[in-house]
Every structure is written in C-alpha cells, then in structure tokens.
C-alpha cells in the first residue's frame, strides 16, 4: 500500500482481526453446539461454527499474504 512509507498494509490488520474473531466465534459455536442459546432462531444450522470457520480461512489468507516481511 505504501511507497513513501513502509507501513504494514491495512489488509494485514484486517486478516488479524478476522482470524481472532473467527477463533472466538467458532469456539463459541462449538461450546454451544448441544446447548443452543434460547430465543435465537435456526440454531440447528450452527451458524457460528461455519461463519467462524469462514472468518478463520479469510483471516489466515490475508495474514499470510500481507504479513510484514522485512526487506533484505
């Protein structure tokens, strides 16, 4: 992103956030797998599990692609 400055690309921070959130949401989905929260619809679809998984995948891709590597 930066030519004048060597700033870590914003995409790396995006990836980091998605990765952390993915882990937390997936974990929460697994913990609640057999005890779904009351008042929430369509819990049989286990949305937190696959949504958390999706965030983890995207987070890993962004972190890996935009990981700040020092120039040789």
């Amino acid at each position: 992103m930066s030519e004048k400055h060597s700033i870590i690309p914003v995409w790396f921070f995006v990836g980091l956030l998605l990765l952390i959130y993915g882990v937390l949401i997936l974990g929460s989905g697994l913990v609640n797998w057999s005890h779904p929260p009351e008042g929430v619809e369509l819990t049989n679809l286990h949305a937190p599990v696959w949504w958390g998984g999706l965030l983890i995948v995207l987070g890993v891709i962004y972190c890996a692609k935009y990981y700040p590597r020092s120039e040789m």
């Binding site: 959130y21 929460s28 609640n32 937190p48």
Partner: peptide, 12 residues
C-alpha cells in the same frame, strides 16, 4: 441481529 445471532456472532 438478536433473532439470528447467538454468543459470538452477536458480539461481532
């Protein structure tokens, strides 16, 4: 949001 999102997703 409250209708479809349980813990974790609600925080997001």
């Amino acid at each position: 949001l409250a209708r479809y999102c349980g813990p974790g997703l609600m925080g997001l």
